[in-house]
Design a protein around this nucleic acid. Structure first.
Lengths: 261, 261
DNA sequence: CGTATCGTTGATCCCCTTCAAGATCTGTGG
DNA sequence: CCACAGATCTTGAAGGGGATCAACGATACG
């Protein structure tokens, strides 16, 4: 269907290593496509694995795919075969109603695993759309669970990843259910900042990968409100925003707005 | 800490069997406290297990706890040791902010598993409060994952349960992010109806276990709005409501209001 | 350079919140 | 069994936050 794509080295540069500790590049001949050679291995699925366990996971995840900006990784109702780990780039999850309305239910950055919601009914329940040219690891699910039976640390990590997805969703539910538009935008900016930091980027300066409309859809407000509030935050000196380039000038004030949630 | 409690038979009667197929009561001496003897085994954690596998799970889950109405099963920040399966009764999950505000993030009925969000950071992230006198199975997590390594069907089921929790949360996010108050109430009633049906109860007649305030908190609206809309639905003949006793008179119209989400 | 997509800002409107008061229910003790 | 207090629910009136409608700038891209 889709042939494996070798990732050019230039792409990997986009993602800065989180932990440089002894990369296992020497252990394998294809560092660019293996978990052991991937700069994200400490925060991705192989977290906690080492030695021969890591090698076995490598064999499982040799297939990579490049997804062009604006195209889908999978669609709602597609049958579920594999999980996908984001290697570079970013995605949005889009829930679709039969009435045609769409709603963004999540944004996904490198090291995060996509497709977890499909495990239960073996069918995806939303579209995953690339926000920029992106690369993913394909992780065949049946083979992954077989391997997890033999590698306790892998089973542990898999369950952790699912659990943290539940935690993240619950955080968003709190946000959607009880925050004003102003609080939502502040919380959104702070969350993005944290995620960027976790990937090794500066915490106070980042590029929005998504449109105002995507943000509004995700936060349950209109794109006009998003725009107005970003303007206001800028006027009040909390941020500097030039198009999608965001700089947090006063993170403390943003936290104050969110109000300790 | 808390001693095992034997469940009186009268309590078990509350939960009607979903599938009466050859209950395995004869296989064990303690049907009232074992998975094999539990009327929920087909929709709970042991789904898909049989024979000696089921026996092993039984040994893991011998401890039961009775939680009185209004008391907590666990609190946010409690350390995570066990998952809990609801045997009878019902619970709400309550997220707590440092500012003191509370928000209900979920309702939980028999056969559902509580505590999944705590797997990742080994600490619970919300309170679980009993809405009525309830019984739960205590499922020690470390032992469960060890057992799941030996029983592939158990690992599969565990991953499915986590995944379906993610799906459920995403459904609520769609609701919170893009529905009017009227749509939320309609969707809430229909969802409750479906869950009751799944447990073997009538689909068009049920008892609300929670207050209007709980419902409002969960749906992101005020208790007054909940009350007003229930009154309006009743006036329009969509439901009959006497206090917490609800009868769906026109489910089709409710679905029409929700609008095919 | 022109077109489409994306973003900003303004004016108006309405759904839901907030505040308030009363009704009903629950359960506890006398 | 009844009375009373606290919790819960209902309903009304007024006000505001965000949606909607609309027009115009800015940017990206072929």
């Amino acid at each position: 269907m889709l042939s494996p794509v070798t990732i050019p080295f230039s792409t990997l540069q986009i993602v800065r290593p989180v932990l440089r500790e002894k990369t296992r590049a020497a252990r394998t001949c294809r560092p660019a496509v293996s978990c052991s050679g991937c700069s994200l291995h400490a925060v991705c699925l192989p977290c906690g694995l080492s030695g021969s366990d890591l090698d076995e996971l490598d064999e499982l995840t040799t297939i990579k795919r490049r997804i062009a900006r604006g195209t889908v990784l999978y669609r709602a109702h597609d049958s579920f075969e594999s999980l996908f780990a984001v290697r570079s780039g970013s995605f949005k999850s889009v829930g679709v109603s039969r009435a045609g309305e769409q709603k963004v239910t999540g944004f996904h950055f490198p090291s995060e695993v996509l497709g977890l919601e499909a495990i239960n009914n073996e069918r995806h329940s939303y579209d995953a759309v690339a926000l920029e040219d992106s690369d993913v690891c394909v992780i065949p699910y049946a083979a992954l669970t077989r391997l997890a039976l033999r590698i306790p640390a892998l089973q542990t990590q898999l369950l952790r990843i699912l659990s943290s997805d539940i935690s993240r969703d619950q955080g968003l539910m709190l946000l959607l259910g009880s925050m004003t538009a102003e609080q939502r935008i502040a919380a959104f900016l702070l969350a993005l900042s944290r995620r960027h930091q976790k990937l090794g980027y500066a915490a106070d300066r980042f590029h929005l990968r998504m449109t105002r409309e995507d943000i509004g859809s995700y936060l349950g407000i209109t794109l006009e409100t998003v725009s107005r509030l970003l303007s206001r935050f800028q006027r009040d000196g909390l941020i500097a925003a030039r198009q999608r380039e965001i700089e947090l000038k006063n993170a403390a004030a943003l936290k104050e707005i969110v109000g300790h949630w």
